Simulated scan of single mutants.
Amino acid sequence: MNYTNPMLKTLTTKPKTIFLIDGLGAMLTAILLAFVLTNFEVYFGMPVNVLHCLAAVACVFMLYSLACYVLLKSRWRSFLNIIMVANLLYCGLTIALVWYYYSRLTPLGMAYFLLECLVIISLVWLEKRVYQGL
C-alpha cells in the first residue's frame, strides 16, 4: 500500500504501535479526569464521582492497550477491534453523561468532553485504517 501520510505508513508497517498510542492516550485521559478535572470541578461542572468512574474506565483501556503492545506477537487484529469498539462505547457514554449533566456543565466542561470525543473518534479512524491496511 502506498500511503502519503508518514504516520499511516509507519503504523501499517508496525501495527502494534497503535496500541502504544491508544494506551498513552488513555493514560493522559485518566490523569486529566482523575487529577485535573476533579480538582477544578467548579470550572468544568462534571461531578467528581462521575469523573472518577470515567478515569477508571480510561485506566482499564490503558492497561489493555499497553498489555497488547507489550505481549502481542501476532493475531493483533481481533485485539485492535476490541479497543476500537471500547473507544466508541466510551464516547457514547461520555456523550450520554454530557447530555445528562448538561445543566451543570460549564462551557469549558462542554469543550473538554466534546474535544475528548473528537480525539477518540479520530484515534478510532486511525485504528481502523491500521486494521484494514495490512
Score class of each variant (00 low, 15 high):
residue 17 T to I: 15
residue 75 R to K: 14
residue 98 V to G: 13
residue 47 P to L: 06
residue 76 W to I: 10
residue 25 G to W: 08
residue 47 P to A: 05
residue 96 A to M: 12
residue 96 A to H: 15
residue 73 K to I: 04
residue 104 R to I: 03
residue 94 T to Q: 15
residue 54 L to A: 09
residue 59 C to N: 15
residue 32 L to I: 15
residue 99 W to R: 05
residue 21 I to S: 05
residue 43 Y to S: 14
residue 37 L to M: 11
residue 107 P to F: 11
residue 26 A to K: 15
residue 130 V to S: 02
residue 25 G to N: 05
residue 124 V to E: 11
residue 3 Y to H: 10
residue 59 C to F: 15
residue 8 L to H: 13
residue 108 L to A: 11
residue 98 V to H: 15
residue 133 G to R: 03
residue 94 T to S: 12
residue 60 V to M: 06
residue 76 W to F: 11
residue 95 I to P: 04
residue 7 M to A: 13
residue 85 V to N: 06
residue 114 L to R: 05
residue 2 N to C: 09
residue 127 E to R: 01
residue 12 T to K: 11
residue 58 A to H: 13
residue 96 A to G: 13
residue 132 Q to A: 12
residue 50 V to C: 00
residue 48 V to A: 01
residue 50 V to F: 02
residue 10 T to R: 12
residue 112 Y to F: 12
residue 103 S to H: 07
residue 60 V to E: 05
residue 37 L to P: 09
residue 55 A to D: 07
residue 73 K to D: 07
residue 46 M to D: 00
residue 65 S to C: 10
residue 43 Y to Q: 11
residue 55 A to P: 14
residue 89 L to P: 00
residue 71 L to I: 07
residue 23 G to E: 11
residue 53 C to K: 05
residue 77 R to G: 09
residue 111 A to H: 04
residue 130 V to Q: 03
residue 44 F to C: 13
residue 34 A to K: 15
residue 22 D to M: 00
residue 13 T to C: 11
residue 125 W to G: 04
residue 13 T to W: 10
residue 105 L to C: 06
residue 53 C to E: 04
residue 134 L to T: 06
residue 60 V to R: 03
residue 127 E to P: 00
residue 110 M to K: 10
residue 33 L to M: 14
residue 36 V to G: 02
residue 24 L to C: 07
residue 33 L to P: 06
residue 38 T to Y: 00
residue 104 R to K: 07
residue 5 N to M: 11
residue 46 M to T: 00
residue 53 C to I: 05
residue 25 G to V: 01
residue 6 P to N: 06
residue 86 A to E: 07
residue 51 L to Y: 00
residue 6 P to T: 03
residue 84 M to Y: 04
residue 102 Y to G: 01
residue 49 N to M: 02
residue 102 Y to P: 08
residue 39 N to T: 07
residue 89 L to D: 03
residue 105 L to G: 02
residue 130 V to P: 04
residue 26 A to Y: 13
residue 90 Y to C: 01
residue 83 I to N: 12
residue 28 L to E: 06
residue 29 T to P: 07
residue 111 A to T: 03
residue 86 A to P: 03
residue 70 V to E: 03
residue 73 K to R: 09
residue 20 L to D: 02
residue 129 R to H: 12
residue 115 L to A: 09
residue 70 V to G: 03
residue 98 V to K: 08
residue 128 K to S: 14
residue 17 T to A: 12
residue 14 K to Y: 13
residue 63 L to E: 01
residue 31 I to E: 08
residue 79 F to C: 15
residue 29 T to R: 13
residue 119 V to R: 07
residue 84 M to F: 01
residue 128 K to R: 14
residue 80 L to F: 03
residue 75 R to D: 05
residue 31 I to C: 12
residue 14 K to C: 15
